[in-house]
Simulated assay, not measured.
Amino acid sequence: MQMITAEEKLKERIKELTCLYEVTSIIVNCDYDQVEDALKGILHCLQKAWLFSEAAQVKLISDQYNIVTPDFPDNPVSLESNVMVFNKKVGEIHVAYPRPKFSEDDFLKEEEKLLINVCLEVGNLLERKQIKDNEIIIKRKMERADRLGILGEITAGIAHELNTPLANILGFAELLKTRITQDTQASKDVDKIINSAIFSREVVKKLMFFACEMPQQMSLVNIGPIIVNAINLMEPSFKKKKIVHKLNISAEPILLRVDTIQLTQVIFNLVLNAIYFSPVKGEIKIDVEETKNMVEITITDEGPGIDRKISDKIFEPFYSTKPVGEGSGLGLSVVHGIVKSHKGAIKYKSNKPKGAIFTVDFPKI
């Protein structure tokens, strides 16, 4: 390494101080939605601060970001430091020169300290971003819980109001049918009234399931046969689209305190949704796993999946991605209501490379 004069040392210190100032300015003015742009700016500042800045290349590798300057060498001589977030290593920043023109001796001790300080600043930025992201997630969950709570109260009221007139329509229509013996067309029309009333009654039941207004009959049961029977009942739907379905469940009893009818409703809704969105000859997997404190049911399909923009709305009542007339928008909200009433949780994530994965966790209570 060539000798550095006092004047050159002073210039290097000025470059390092300037770098720290610029990095701090970038972080202070950073919008949390543009963290990647801020990190690119920080790497550019680092590049300028090195002794041989025209040859220096920088990269940041982390669990979320992979940012590399354009001419980063394949076999570099490099100086590196860890980026820590909440005392956990999440990545590294490397400053490199190309071999064989440069060697480890071309790095200054002050540059090593500068890199450590910049990594500390980057770690602080990522910590603040993580805190902000968590605040947003918690806020959304609270808002969603409030909306679902209000909707639950409204739908419970609607369901109770509709039950009596629907029962009257169904009862009087059936009574009228017994009196019509000669008029075939009138009999057919009454059948339509009866079928429509029965369909409407089922919608009201779904509303009551969502609002957790249906009386539960909780008991400790082996859920294996319940899940198997529910899936067997959907065999015609599987065959219609030539869908292969695989159920992975232990042969040993899996005991869980549940309402058996409501558990069947959960399996039905989730699997029927998977069938609806699956391609012909697709595959649906139903996995049931038991841990010490939890039973986890996972349903995986190969359909189009759910757009990230609407993924936070899918459990809201009356929200449906199906065409008009093909879905009431109550299926997933019913599942959400049942799972919540069992003190469980339901989650969605994308299947790779395509499809959807719904996971239901039932605690052993």
Rank of each mutant, 00 (worst) to 15 (best):
S341E: 15
F199R: 11
G325F: 06
E302P: 00
E22R: 06
Q47Y: 04
I346D: 14
V266D: 13
E22C: 03
L17R: 07
V339H: 10
K292P: 00
C30P: 10
K340G: 07
G327N: 04
L51A: 02
F107S: 10
T18R: 02
M1C: 09
E326Q: 04
D191M: 08
G157H: 14
V258D: 11
D361F: 11
G91Q: 12
I27F: 01
M214D: 12
F172P: 00
E174W: 00
D31P: 05
I243V: 01
K188N: 15
G303T: 08
P304I: 02
T181F: 07
G149D: 15
I231T: 01
E302H: 01
E36G: 02
A38S: 14
Y319V: 15
I154H: 03
E161L: 12
I193L: 11
N293C: 01
K354F: 11
K241E: 14
R308W: 08
K239W: 06
Y32P: 05
L39Y: 10
E7M: 05
K9I: 08
R147T: 15
S62Y: 06
N168E: 15
S78H: 04
K354I: 07
K313T: 14
M1N: 08
F318G: 14
F238T: 04
N75V: 12
L79P: 00
L332H: 12
D106G: 01
L43W: 09
L263G: 11
E202V: 09
I158W: 11
Y97K: 06
K15C: 02
E316C: 11
N273H: 09
I286E: 07
M294D: 10
Y276N: 12
D259W: 01
A345H: 12
V203Q: 13
K285P: 00
E161Y: 09
K141T: 07
G327C: 02
V228Y: 05
I138M: 03
K59G: 10
Y21K: 11
E112F: 03
F102P: 05
G337P: 08
C212T: 15
E12Q: 13
I169L: 10
I61T: 14
D312L: 06
L126C: 13
K11R: 03
K188D: 15
V221W: 03
A159W: 07
E54M: 09
I198F: 00
I194Y: 02
M3W: 07
S25Q: 15
N168S: 13
V90D: 11
P76Y: 03
I138D: 13
F52K: 08
N163M: 11
K188C: 09
L162N: 10
P323D: 14
V68C: 08
L233D: 15
P304K: 01
Q34V: 05
L263P: 09
C119Q: 02
N269V: 00
G331P: 09
L115C: 08
E296S: 05
P165H: 13
S78L: 05
Q47T: 13
G41H: 08
M218F: 09
F199G: 12
